[in-house]
Write a protein that binds this DNA or RNA. Structure first.
Lengths: 192, 192, 192, 192
DNA sequence: GATGAATGAGTGTTCATTCAT
DNA sequence: TATGAATGAACACTCATTCAT
C-alpha cells in the first residue's frame, strides 16, 4: 500500500515535468522502484493513474478554495486571499500545481472527461469569486469602476501566469506575492 | 516546395494542440496530405521539424519585438506596446503563440538546445525591456516606486497568463487588452 | 471444498466457450467468485486445471461407454446405443461435451500428455466397438457388406459432427437422434 | 507484396493448428521470415489479419459452392456433389478447411462481425441446398420419406464431422468419400 | 483455506526512421 | 521530389504464477 503512494508521487513528478505523453509507465515504475505491472495492479492504466492523480490534486485544491469563504473586512482582502492561496499551493506542492495549470493531454480533453471537468470547474469557481468581489467592491465604492468580467479574467490570467513561472524555477516567492498584491491593490482601490 | 510549407503549417497546429509528444509523424503527414518519408526529406526528423518551427516562430516574434524600439512620449507607452504586441501575435497566429508560451518537450529542454535558448532569450529580452522602462519611469517620477525586478516578472507573468487564456478560446481580445493596459496604468502611474 | 468445485464448473464453462487460450485464470476466478491464488491452491496451474477437468469429463464419459456393454438382440442395437449415449451426454453436460470433441490446446497436444491420450483412447474405443459390431453384423447377414473401417470412421464422424452442432445451439435433440438412427439403420440393414 | 502473402499463408497454418488465441503475432512474423511491424503495415491488427483470412477462405469456398449449381440427372447427385466439394476442399487446402469448420475466436463471435456472418451464411446456404434436394427427391419418389430439416442437419453434421477428421490426419480420402456417399445413397434412395 | 501484493515474461501494437526505387 | 515497404526500439498492457500472511 505504501508502494501505491510511491507510484503516485513519482507519477506526479514525472507528469508535471515531462507531460503525460512524454512520460512512460516504465519510467514511472523504475523511478518509483517497483515493476511496471504493479502500476496496473493499482490502476486500470496510464490514463486512470493520471485521472486519479488529477482528481486527488484538484480535491485538495478545492478544499483550500472552499476554506477561503468567511467574513473579510473588505472585498480586496478576498482577492488577496486568493493570491495567497495559490502562492501557498505552489510552495506546498510545486509539481501538483503544474498539473493543475497545464492543459489535459489531448486524449483526455473531451468535455465528458473528469479531467476536463475539473479544470472547467476550477475556472468557473475562481471567476465566480472574483467577479462577486469586484461587483460588491465597486458598489460599495471600495474599488474603482472596472469591467468586472474582463478584470476577473485578467486576475485569473495573472495568477496562472505567476503560478506557472513559479513552478518552473523557485524564486523568492514572498516578494513576488507581496508585489502582485500591491500591484493589484493600487490598480483596484478607489483612492478618493 | 508548397508541400513543405503544408507540413510545417500542419505540424504547428498539431504540436500546439496536442503537444510534441502527443503528435506523431504519421498524423502530421496524413493531415498534411503527404506521406511520412516526405517529412524526412525536408527535415532531419521530428525533433528537427519542431526545432525548425520554433525557430521560425521565434524569428517572427523577435522581429516584432525589435520593431518595438523607437521613441515614445513616456515609459508607460513602452509597456503598453508590449501588451499590444502580444495580443496582436495571438490574434495573428494563435497556434504559434501556444508553442511560444508552452514549455519545450522534455527531450529538448537541455540548455544547449536552440529551443531552450530561444525561450530563455525571449524571457531575458522582455524582462530587460520591462525593467529598463520601470527604472526609467521611477527615476523620472512617471511611475510610483515599485520593486523593478519583481514587477517586471509580474508583468511578464500577466502577459503569459493572458496570452495563454487567449490561445485556448477566442474571446473579445480588444476589451481584454484595454482592461489589462488600464489595470497596469492605474497601478504603475504615480498620480501625485 | 465447495469452492474448488465452483472453480471447476466455471472453468469448464469458460474453456468450452472460449477455448483454453482464450480463457484467463483471472476470468475463471472472478466468474467463480474467488480470488486467483485459490486456483493455485487447488491446482498446480492452468494446465493442471484443464488436465484435471478433461480427466474428470473423460472419466464419466468412459464410465458410460463401458456401461454400454451387455447383450443386445442384434448388432444394430449396439450402434443405436452409442448414438443414444452421445446424445444423452450432450443433453446432460453440454459444456463438457464441447471439451471432449474439441482439440486440445496446442501446448497439450504432445502424445505423452494425458489429454492427448484421453482423446486417442476415446477414438480407439469407439472405433473398436463400431468395427466389431459391423464385422459381426456383416457376418451374420444383419448388415449389408460395407467397408468396416471406413464405415466406423464415418459413424464416428457423424456422431462428432452432430454432437458438435448440438453443443452450439440446443434444438430438439430427440428428433435429431431418431432421424440419425433411422438414417443409419436404412443404410446398414440388409433388407432381404 | 510477396511478403504479405507469406504472412497470410503462415497465419493460416498457425491459426488452423493452434487457434487464434494460441497464435502470437511474433510467431507468425518469425515463421514467415519477416518482422512483427510488417504485419501491422499490411493489416490493422491481429483481428484484422484473421478476418481478412477468413474472408478470403470463405470467398473461395463460396465460389465453389455457387459453381455447384447446374442440372443434374437426379437429386442425389446434388448431394453427392456437396460431399465431393468438401472432400476436394480439404484436399486442396487442409489448413483453410479447419478455419472454416472451427468456431470463431470468442471475441469475434458477435453476430455483427463478418466472421460470424460468414459462418452463418455457409450453414444457411448448405442447409438450403440440402433441404431443397431432399424435398424435391421425396416428391418425385427418388428419396424415401425422411424429415427434411432434421436430415439436412444430419448431412451437414456428417460433412463437418468427416471434414474435421480429415483435417487432422490425412488418410485415404477417396475411400472415405465413396463410403460416405454410398452410405447416404442406401439410406435415402427409395428402392421400390 | 484463502488473499492482497507483487512480478518475469510476454502480447499486441505504435513510433520515428530508413531505403530502394 | 516523392513513396511503398520495411524495421529496431519502445510502448501500454496482460498473463500465469508466487509469496508472505
Amino acid at each position: 500500500m505504501i508502494r501505491k503512494q510511491t507510484i503516485i508521487t513519482t507519477a506526479i513528478k514525472l507528469f508535471a515535468r515531462q507531460g503525460f505523453d512524454g512520460t512512460t509507465t516504465l519510467q514511472i515504475a523504475t523511478e518509483a522502484g517497483v515493476t511496471e505491472p504493479l502500476i496496473y495492479y493499482h490502476f486500470k492504466g496510464k490514463d486512470d493513474l493520471f485521472t486519479h492523480i488529477l482528481g486527488e490534486v484538484f480535491g485538495s485544491y478545492f478544499i483550500r478554495l472552499e476554506a477561503l469563504e468567511g467574513p473579510t473586512k473588505n472585498e480586496f482582502e478576498k482577492i488577496e486571499r486568493i493570491f495567497a492561496l495559490h502562492f501557498q499551493f505552489v510552495e506546498d506542492m510545486p509539481d501538483e500545481t503544474l498539473l493543475i495549470v497545464s492543459a489535459c493531454p489531448a486524449k483526455l480533453r473531451d468535455p465528458e472527461n473528469i479531467c476536463a471537468q475539473n479544470i472547467a470547474r476550477q475556472r468557473k469557481l475562481l471567476i465566480g469569486i472574483l467577479m462577486n468581489s469586484l461587483q460588491t467592491g465597486i458598489r460599495t465604492g471600495e474599488f474603482c469602476k472596472v469591467p468586472t468580467e474582463a478584470t476577473a479574467n485578467l486576475l485569473l490570467g495573472l495568477i496562472n501566469g505567476l503560478v506557472r513561472q513559479r513552478s518552473f524555477k523557485m524564486e523568492t516567492l514572498e516578494e513576488m506575492r507581496a508585489t502582485a498584491v500591491d500591484f493589484c491593490r493600487r490598480s483596484l482601490l478607489a483612492t478618493a
